[in-house]
Design a protein around this nucleic acid. Structure first.
Lengths: 279, 279
DNA sequence: CGGTTTTTTGATGGACGTCAACCCAAGTGG
DNA sequence: CCACTTGGGTTGACGTCCATCAAAAAACCG
């Protein structure tokens, strides 16, 4: 029953993908509650006590924070199989609210139980660490993203990111089944056709820190370029490659191979090279 | 000898501040290398193999990434007692470079040794988790910060943040000893006088994703308002309260008390309240 | 003291927010 | 079946913030 958890924790993990039999047994003891929500319902609010470790089972939701000025910052979206608001796990109370974007099923594990199990086996907590590290990497990426890139790039990046994380089942919502599949599965990601479920534009705006008006403008540009199509409450990606170019995607992440091996001081050299490689 | 590590790991930690005797012994076995660097030297570069867990002992340094367009993103600054680039711990190679801003001493722990020790005791890895969670919280804060706030706010925030993390010893660089101390130690942070060591403006710009020209303009505004004074290669904070107002500081972080307890669905209620609390 | 960075300042333009409409689809109640 | 509402999306006019370009001034470094 807790296979869900194991799957989530080991999802494309680097190397720690298999647990010992002991650990499997430990985990299997944890029974989650299975919670159903309808579209647009509030799972929890900011400042509310946080007692559960949450795992997205079906549907989509997002967490958000309200700022002093009344605006809203969308922190992240969550898709099936993803851990929800991991960074709030150790907190007594939530610092962000969680709202569903569609009908959804969420698995709720008792937090105390989890941490108890964790402290029992070092291996398990290392899995969590793994997860944390991955989250951090993503956050860092997003930070750079938001700090440096234009609205166009941000929106393109956002669309691609969402599209990538969107599970195939959800993608096939409309027609275009084969195309969507090939577009998402082929490593070369040929210009395909895929679909985003009802993500309102205001959400994109709040996620990227842009005004809804400007998001709309950008989307219109994309539409006129033939890269996307806009349906009621949803965006269809038509030309993924073009979007990748617009986003400056450069197959980031995995492609950081170790190329120029001029070493810094830690690896031998002691050059006093000033920090002027930029521009 | 590894007391340094313990101190860093437990620094204002929530509750896991003390280790068992066993764990202390385990840690004490890890002997760091003590590395000395002079100002503006490169500790490591991007893409370089990452073999050490680094702890700032003396001085200041920062890590940074080079973007496609040739510009530089400063990821974070590190002050004495802080763990360096924690998020890169599990990575084979660094994704950011590290450069010193002043003469510096860095403690380097063998990574393999650390992780080995970690997997031996669950408690120790929980400490690391603690650290990771804290980093995440900070990153999240920064994300919101960068996404939503004006240059003025960002700069003000940056100055305050740095000022807070700057250890007293470094602050006393010039004169103004007593004032600096009271300004940093008193909880009410009365309008005081403190000092930032040689942080070039270009670094602020690269950290905040602003142009150096604009950073300079903002600083000039602050100067003309009498909030800061600019010395060669350094900025002195004169009116911290005014800066806090400018930054929209609102004593963030700790002050998030649990106030309005209207519960979301997870805590009983099942209201279908739409997501329209903003604006 | 010249060369090299940093800081400072001005002028100009583009990107993006704000305001204010209008459109359109989906209810909702009569 | 139709008026009315309601919430999102769409569009234009306009202003602000901030990047860019360019160049002077100041600080630094041998």
């Amino acid at each position: 029953m807790a296979e869900e958890l194991i799957k989530a924790l080991t999802k494309d993990s680097y190397d720690v993908s298999q647990l010992s039999e002991d650990e499997r047994l430990l985990l299997a003891e944890i029974k989650p509650q299975r919670l159903h929500f309808e579209k647009d319902s509030v799972v929890f609010r900011e400042e509310e006590p946080a007692n559960y470790f949450l795992l997205m089972k079906e549907g989509i939701c997002f967490n958000h924070r309200h700022l002093e000025d009344g605006s809203r910052q969308v922190m992240d979206l969550y898709f099936p199989g993803e851990v929800i608001a991991l960074s709030e796990l150790p907190l007594e109370a939530h610092v962000s609210g969680l709202t569903t974007l569609s009908d959804a099923v969420i698995l709720a594990y008792d937090k105390a139980e989890i941490t108890e199990k964790c402290s029992r086996t070092a291996r398990l907590s290392r899995l969590f660490m793994e997860l944390l590290f991955r989250e951090q990497a993503i956050l860092t990426e997003r930070l750079v993203e938001v700090a440096r890139h234009s609205a166009n790039k941000r929106v393109a990046h956002f669309l691609l990111d969402i599209n990538q994380r969107l599970p195939p089942s959800t993608k096939l919502l409309h027609h275009a089944g084969a195309d969507a599949l090939s577009a998402c599965c082929s490593p070369k990601s040929l210009t395909g056709l895929s679909n985003l479920v009802g993500i309102p534009q205001v959400l994109i705006a709040d996620a990227l820190g842009l005004s809804i008006v400007h998001v709309n403008r950008v989307l219109r540009q994309f539409k006129e370029a033939g890269w996307i199509r806009i349906r009621s409450q949803g965006i269809e990606l038509l030309d993924i490659d073009a979007l990748k170019v617009a986003a400056g995607w450069e197959s980031e992440g995995e492609a950081r191979s170790i190329l120029h091996n001029q070493h810094g001081a830690l690896n031998g050299d002691t050059a006093r090279s000033h920090v002027k490689d930029n521009q």
